[in-house]
Simulated assay, not measured.
Amino acid sequence: MNETLIRSLSGLVYVLILLLATLLSRESFLLLFGLFMLQTVREFANLIHLPQTLALIASGLIFINFAVFATPLWVDMVVIVFSIVILILLMLWLFSKNQAPFKHSGWITLTGYIAFPFVCLTKLPILDSQFIPSIIIAIFILIWTNDTFAYLIGKSFGKNKLFERISPKKTIEGFLGGLLFAIIAGVIISMYYVPIFSVLTWMVIAVVTSVFGTIGDLVESKFKRMANVKDSGRIMPGHGGILDRLDSIIFVAPFVFILFKILEYVS
């Protein structure tokens, strides 16, 4: 079968499963993203050479305790702050020439880069104790819009490399194009899909999603370069692993989650 067709069908199945599970109920949403997290943990453990079974057990317990069950605000803040600290350290690592800084901190990285961000992701559609699936779907739309237009504009007009050492195909023009169209998508979402947040709020979410989503993709690319692999896994034909598909959203989730908490506090 044609490789492009395989990639398209695989991507379509992924999107349909994601949308159906998210729209069906909070329970199906948690189940799907719990499975996504376990597969992502498996792939990441392979990249940085952590014991797979222990990594799956530890992350599974984290997900059950912090995502499935309701947690008080102070616990949410611990999850957010821990995740953001680790993600900031990963951003600093991205710009360094050090290729293997995680020999003695793999478990901390696994928690702050994979497990806790998945917890944040599952809490994004919860507003006033209500599960609102359109919120998380809208954030995925922003991710997909950014990625699609970054690719199209980069391919058509890209001349200046964004981060050639890590991702030779990304360009500054592509990044700016993805950012612009993500903001446009945010405006449309605020008007027609999730009007519970203002236009300005969705524009800020779009900027956060575009910037940190791109960084998340670059960070995962560096992990793969460090492991000397093209993809994090093979579960999705033509796309690679689940980490390859969710590297942007898991990097974005803690930053959007803290934005939501700030909005909740000031409102």
Rank of each mutant, 00 (worst) to 15 (best):
L32R: 12
L32S: 09
L32V: 07
L32M: 12
F33P: 12
F33W: 12
F33L: 15
F33T: 08
F33C: 14
G34F: 02
G34V: 03
G34A: 07
L35P: 02
L35A: 06
F36E: 00
F36N: 02
F36Q: 00
M37R: 06
M37N: 05
M37W: 00
M37G: 08
L38A: 15
L38P: 08
L38W: 03
L38G: 12
Q39T: 15
Q39P: 10
Q39I: 14
T40F: 01
T40V: 06
T40S: 11
T40M: 01
V41H: 02
V41F: 00
V41P: 03
V41S: 02
V41T: 04
R42S: 07
R42M: 09
R42W: 02
R42T: 10
R42E: 03
E43P: 05
F44W: 04
A45V: 04
A45E: 00
N46A: 10
N46T: 11
N46Y: 01
N46H: 12
N46C: 11
N46W: 04
L47M: 02
L47T: 05
I48R: 05
I48D: 10
I48V: 10
I48T: 06
I48E: 06
I48C: 08
I48P: 06
H49G: 08
H49M: 04
H49P: 06
L50R: 01
L50S: 02
P51S: 02
P51G: 02
P51K: 07
P51R: 01
Q52T: 12
Q52K: 14
Q52D: 08
T53P: 02
T53Q: 05
T53E: 02
T53V: 05
T53D: 03
L54M: 07
L54Y: 12
A55R: 00
A55C: 07
L56V: 07
L56P: 03
L56R: 11
I57R: 13
I57F: 12
I57M: 10
I57D: 11
I57C: 15
A58S: 08
A58T: 11
S59A: 13
S59D: 05
S59K: 10
S59Q: 07
S59M: 10
S59I: 07
S59E: 01
G60P: 09
G60S: 12
G60C: 14
G60Y: 03
G60A: 09
G60H: 04
L61I: 14
L61D: 13
L61N: 13
I62C: 13
I62Q: 04
I62G: 11
I62N: 05
F63M: 15
F63S: 15
F63H: 15
I64D: 12
I64V: 11
I64Y: 14
I64K: 15
N65A: 15
N65K: 15
N65Y: 06
F66S: 08
F66L: 13
F66A: 09
F66M: 09
F66Y: 08
A67P: 11
A67Q: 10
V68I: 13
V68F: 10
F69C: 11
F69Q: 15
F69N: 14
A70C: 15
A70Y: 12
A70D: 14
A70W: 08
T71L: 09
T71P: 03
T71W: 06
T71K: 12
P72E: 03
P72K: 08
P72R: 13
P72H: 09
L73M: 14
L73P: 13
L73Y: 10
L73C: 14
W74I: 05
W74M: 03
V75L: 13
V75K: 12
